[in-house]
Design a protein around this nucleic acid. Structure first.
Lengths: 330, 330
DNA sequence: ATTTAAAATGAAAGCGGTTTCATTACTGTG
DNA sequence: CACAGTAATGAAACCGCTTTCATTTTAAAT
């Protein structure tokens, strides 16, 4: 591995000059610049990021804390971050917080220890106090989590409103007995979607029937459990609002097991619009989260933030993705 | 941020001693060790990985090249890598090669530039010559790709055999007109699965009918296209072997659109066993890839390889996951 | 109590860059 | 042609840690 010194020797200049052309930081005669560039090519030079980071204070890497690697929503956000970071010179390094405070604390530690130049936190449970500390220390953007006081460093989406609109869509189609399969208890997304659900019901003059809300955990399995349980207690329902698409899949399967048709007998609406949703039978109507877009936006914002430039966070909408799992109530 | 010098001062020892307790590299009196540890706690010390790496030559990070962030199989392998690396002291840093030689070359470059201590390459298209170079330079494990001469640094799975068994399963159930939806042309996995398919057919004395093999690309969309096309040309088929589960989902939906029942009229077998497969209606029979296990195994192997210890690569089987999308031909 | 080997420790030299600061090489003016 | 002012360059310090090597302690052996 060639070092800056090797280049300097070959090009007959000093290390300092090499560094300057490397960073384009200060004027260098065209003649020497070319000599240096030639030397770099000849020796196939690749700067040692560690050394750069140590000396210069910047590592050109940005840390991304994601949750549950492999879960569609967080993956899509991550994908967006990758996209958004390409061609910026920054590379992302990912760590999985697994929605556990301890794990999150720990991996944030290793990220910070790796001297990342900035942090993107996707979801997660890190206490706000810790977050505020972090922000002092490092440019930080939080995604998919609502935080007071973070106006400009927080990209999130209105889950209450989306929950409202999902429910409203069902109501508009004539449904009044709408079951809700709740996500993980206390999970902000779940809680907020539920809030929207309640509000939509209220606005439509429908009384909330607690028999119709099942406490799940965002898994497909909880979707089947929910339907089984709902069916066991004979409170009738004509539609299901699932905490997310996975839950919807589970619910759809359970309904199928019971010989209940979707959407003829029961309508289902999901949340996320993960890739598989469009291929459920029938294709799943769902609230599409702008996951990739959030990732891209957060990357863009973070780079600006690091460079001290100003930026504006986009307001990203959750949109109803109409497909075929919701039908007008006969 | 406290440095090793701060600790040294506080504990009244030299930097060298602090370094020693940090790395547990050489004997230190219990008394001083404790003093140092106390100081570390008090100052909330976190070693600067960049400096460690620069000085020590090791960065305690291992680079992972994955493909198409968000695709179930690669995600699962990655997940496995994370699991396998936890508690080893190494942290993974991920990069997405997007199944493009150029991108791969590039991101491997940045990984190497970041002085990772080892490399895990999941799938990908990097030419073998480059790989061989890489191997000289850095401990490297390749996952999900078959490579001659890499016996001990290559974790893969027998796609030919799995393709054979998938097809055989269909044949055992009485099917003889078996359509195959091929993955990306030239993609080794796809090619090998096709090879297994051909062989199983041959062994059963069934002639391969090229009308029954559709050239897809691993996407759900290609699954629907395949079925539409298959149906359009009136070559009858009673079963479909899909390149992977996504394709199976697409195929299943297309069949549904045509009023063809699964599995009563047509059986489907998938490949991967991604999370959603179990919740398809009907639940998808599929060849389960040991993705997570491969990730775990590769992580474990790489750590051994780095440490110069010996290890053995597990032989991981692809197993038929029987569910309900395959039925005996009436 | 000596001598000697082994164990602990510290000083200092890197690791490969960046950056400050002083120096030298050019400009364009008067 | 001398002179200032600016542009280009190099020397050297430094980033935070590891590691070698020499030195000091400690323990064991005589």
């Amino acid at each position: 591995m060639a070092t800056i010194q090797d280049i300097a020797d070959l090009a007959n200049v000093s290390k300092a000059t090499v560094s300057r052309v490397l960073n384009n930081s200060s004027l260098v005669t065209t003649q020497k610049r070319i000599a240096v560039e030639d030397a770099m090519n000849e020796l196939n030079f690749q700067p040692n990021v560690m050394a750069q980071s140590l000396a210069g204070g910047r590592s050109m890497t940005i840390g991304v804390l994601t949750q549950n690697f492999g879960s569609p929503f967080y993956d899509s956000v991550s994908q967006g971050v990758i996209d958004g970071l390409s061609d910026t010179g920054y590379s992302p390094i990912f760590a999985d917080g697994q929605w556990k405070q301890n794990t999150e604390r720990e991996v944030i530690g290793t990220l910070v220890g790796r001297k990342v130049d900035g942090l993107i936190l996707i979801g997660g449970d890190v206490p706000v106090s810790k977050l505020n500390e972090l922000r002092e220390q490092l440019p930080t953007i939080v995604v998919a989590r609502e935080l007071d006081d973070w106006e400009n460093q927080c990209i999130h989406v209105d889950n209450v409103d989306a929950g409202y609109r999902a429910t409203k869509h069902l109501i508009d189609f004539g449904h009044r007995e709408i079951a809700l399969i709740h996500g993980i208890r206390n999970h902000p997304d779940a809680v907020q979607r539920f809030e929207g659900y309640s509000k939509a019901l209220a606005d439509a003059g429908i009384e909330l029937n607690s028999n119709l809300v099942y406490s799940g955990d965002f898994s497909a399995q909880s979707g089947v459990l929910a339907v089984n349980s709902l069916l066991a207690q004979s409170t009738h329902f004509s539609a299901v609002f699932a905490a997310n698409d996975m839950v919807a899949f589970g619910a759809r399967l359970a309904l199928h097991r019971h010989g209940i048709r979707v959407p003829e007998d029961v309508s289902i609406i999901g949340f996320d619009d993960q890739a598989e949703a469009a291929f459920m039978t029938p294709p799943l109507t769902t609230m599409r989260q702008p996951a990739v877009e959030m990732g891209v936006a957060s990357a863009a914002a973070l780079v600006k933030l690091i460079d001290g430039e100003s930026y504006e966070l986009p307001r990203l909408p959750i949109e109803l993705q109409r497909r075929e799992s919701v039908a007008r109530l006969r």
